[in-house]
Design a protein around this nucleic acid. Structure first.
Lengths: 211, 211
DNA sequence: ACCCCTTACCTAACGCGGTTAGATTTAGTT
DNA sequence: AACTAAATCTAACCGCGTTAGGTAAGGGGT
């Protein structure tokens, strides 16, 4: 078997399949050979389109960056725009939570990622921030979004709330009481993020108002 | 060569060495054999003290958890206490930034981690939060801390600020202007975290005042 | 004091997974 | 029509996590 009449692979096709595999079977299942299987191809063939597994992760990361909707940042109401942008940003990573750990701590070189930061900073400056203040606010927002998508606070607590009571009473109280909220325990991550987002925007608004 | 007169290894010794190796040479350099080299031992010997590389990471994570100072949470001034706790928490992970990606998305079973959450929640309830409200605030705080320790916003931008200007003007403005701040570009991560922390505590204080 | 079992190291080697080399067939270009 | 480049293949290398089994030192029971 030699070259196929129709190409079977491309960098984007491979990256997309990698994201699917990652979501369905987790990071340990993301092997070059398994990925090739899923694409009906042999492992070595992937290397005609990606330089390495690391490069493959870069490609997947680029796909994710492209999914983030920058539109809200054009909203003339800066507060609403930034909130919607942050939610969309978070939503993309929540749908591919394993990617955060795989991609974090890399250089930001992808054009699309830089465009995103540029748009966010421009929106903040438009809202009245100084350029340096905008950088700080953007950093804080980034931390909140990525932290909340990475950690899924809730998922760490696997036992029934009451099981924690003997040794960790305050934790048990909080988990039990959280269970009665809309969304329940599973919604805690969302509500925690929304709380942080609201406070962040409140703080920003107050800072801008007094200036 | 058989059993040594004095034991050379222990779970804690291995975990500590793993943290050092991780810091000095990065995650890819953390190999069982390299780790053994550093300890003057052969790779297989490690398995008498840790069940697997994964278990080793758990052990290292436990060490980090123990380094987090819970003392500030006893501060009668809740705001100062929580801020100091959050800074200390972040400082620990900043000193071992690679651990975040390695350890995130695991179950929280370590006793010490549960004690930490319990203490934080108790402090928030002590400040006046409802148990469910405390959980949300704790989640938001956690996201900010881990996000800021994970991401090091700044480190992503490796080019000179001016190089970004043609395509990303707002980014270039912010980076240049940031360079003139105390701490400069390198301090942006700290200032972003402090900004988020301040706004979060402000929001919490406002919420408690009106209740 | 001796024996024996356990402990903590060793050497050797397996197997999986990322990666490379080189063959083969088709596409595109002159 | 011939030649080069491209896209897949098969085969194999090598590094790393892990396991099997050997060996010497500790330490408890008689």
């Amino acid at each position: 078997m030699g070259r196929p009449s129709q190409p079977l692979l491309s960098r984007a096709i491979i990256a997309r399949a990698a994201l699917e595999l990652l979501n369905e079977e987790g990071p340990d299942a993301l092997k070059m050979r398994s990925l090739a299987d899923r694409l009906g191809v042999r492992g070595a063939s992937l290397y005609h389109h990606v330089a390495s597994k690391d490069d493959l992760l870069d490609a997947a990361s680029e796909l994710l960056n492209e999914e983030i909707d920058l539109g809200p940042l054009q909203d003339p109401q800066w507060r609403r725009g930034i909130a919607e942008y942050a939610r969309g940003y978070r939503r993309v990573y929540l749908q591919h939570p394993h990617m955060i750990a795989l991609v974090a701590r890399r250089r930001v070189e992808a054009d699309r990622a830089l465009i995103g930061y540029d748009a966010l900073l421009a929106a903040l400056v438009g809202a009245g921030c100084t350029p340096a203040g905008a950088a700080e606010a953007a950093a804080a927002l980034d931390y909140l979004v990525l932290g909340s998508a990475l950690e899924t606070f809730t998922a760490g607590f696997t036992r029934a709330p009451a099981d924690y009571r003997p040794d960790y009473p305050a934790l048990a109280d909080s988990l039990e009481s959280t269970g009665t909220r809309p969304g329940g325990l599973a919604g805690l991550d969302d509500r925690g993020f929304e709380l942080g987002l609201r406070f962040l925007l409140d703080g920003l608004a107050a800072q801008l108002a007094q200036a």
